[in-house]
């Protein structure tokens, strides 16, 4: 198990390098310098520009900047933010990421619980209408963009019914978290429910389920132990593939609902050409993706003994 994890971690290093290289290239291909947007009406003195370039090493050749930033990043120094020189990028990550992470974990937890529930109900119900209704609801949730869900939830629940605040953030355990959590959770929930339903339908007719039933095992135990455990493997895979994008925060949800999170900061950084923030946020995202994949593998390892053969 340990050597397997070590191998996976080592294998993710090239991935992170590719992500860094591509982001670095994109950030520096984007025309204009970070000092343009600060004073669009009043162009900055060339001398001041050159001084700023020199201060942030932007006057050096690209390959020197490439290595230099990478060397700093490995040591945990993500550089200063151009847009807001008073704080370093590491501070910004520390300030904005926890909100998004908390929001995202809540949403993913909700998605897994609701998705499993809907999937199992859809598969096991004898009512064709209920099955069709759940499937349709899931297609509906997968189709809708998150910003529509957020906006519609705010208009109905906030403006219409007055149940939740229409804008702002008062922490994870307040009514202000309801709309962002629900809007983030719906799409992964729908995907999980669909996978879960199909897996349960597949497993239901396997021999071991029939034997368990013949032995007289209780129906609830058959569902929980024999069917659900087998259905969990693909569910974990799907949840993992959604988890990374939900955890890092959605720009749309965060800006519409007024959550001071990581996703919103990224988009602001792109429009300000804040290179260190752009590269750092993308790297943080890639690290989260790698970690999620690792967690999925570990979960598979724990749920399904058959996968243990391959990993040794």
């Amino acid at each position: 198990m340990f050597s397997f994890m070590l191998r996976r971690v080592l294998a993710s290093i090239p991935t992170l390098l590719v992500v860094y290289t591509v982001t670095f290239a994109i950030a520096h291909l984007t025309p204009g310098s970070p000092w343009d947007s600060a004073s669009a009406n009043r162009p900055m003195e060339p001398a001041a520009k050159a001084a700023l370039d020199a201060k942030y090493n932007l006057d050096e050749p690209l390959q020197v900047q490439y290595i230099g930033y990478l060397w700093g990043a490995v040591q945990g120094d993500l550089g200063p933010s151009f847009r807001d020189p008073s704080q370093s990028v590491a501070d910004i990550v520390k300030k904005f990421l926890p909100t998004s992470l908390a929001l995202g974990s809540m949403a993913i937890a909700l998605a897994i619980v609701m998705g499993l529930l809907l999937g199992v109900v859809a598969a096991l119900t004898r009512s064709r209408a209920l099955d069709t209704a759940i499937l349709f609801f899931c297609t509906f949730c997968v189709s809708l963009p998150t910003y529509i869900i957020t906006a519609v939830l705010i208009v109905t629940m906030g403006v219409g019914l007055g149940l939740v605040p229409t804008f702002g953030w008062k922490g994870l355990f307040s009514t202000s978290a309801i709309v962002p959590v629900v809007s983030l959770a719906l799409a992964p929930m729908a995907a999980i429910a669909r996978y879960c339903r199909n897996c349960v339908l597949e497993v239901m007719h396997k021999d071991f389920v029939r034997s368990a039933r013949a032995k007289g095992v209780k129906r609830s135990r058959i569902i929980a132990v024999h069917i659900l455990r087998n259905a969990l493997v693909p569910v974990v895979t799907v949840a993992g593939s959604y988890a990374s994008s939900v955890l890092v925060g959605s720009f749309f949800v965060e800006s519409i609902a007024g959550v001071p999170g990581f996703g919103r900061y990224f988009v602001l950084a792109v429009s300000a050409r804040d290179y260190p923030v752009i590269i750092a946020t993308t790297l943080v995202y890639a690290v989260i993706v790698v970690l999620c994949n690792l967690l999925v593998d570990i979960a598979h390892f724990m749920i399904d003994p058959r996968t243990r053969e391959d990993v040794r």
């Binding site: 090239p14 991935t15 992170l16 590719v18 992500v19 591509v22 982001t23 994109i26 950030a27 984007t30 990374s244 994008s245 890092v248 959605s250 720009f251 996703g263 990224f266 988009v267 792109v270 752009i278 946020t281 993308t282 995202y285 890639a286 993706v289 790698v290």
Partner: peptide, 14 residues
């Protein structure tokens, strides 16, 4: 595979 480690919407924005 590495490109999958990019956030899709954010990558499109970049």
């Amino acid at each position: 595979d590495s490109m999958y480690a990019f956030p899709d919407t954010l990558f499109a924005i970049l």
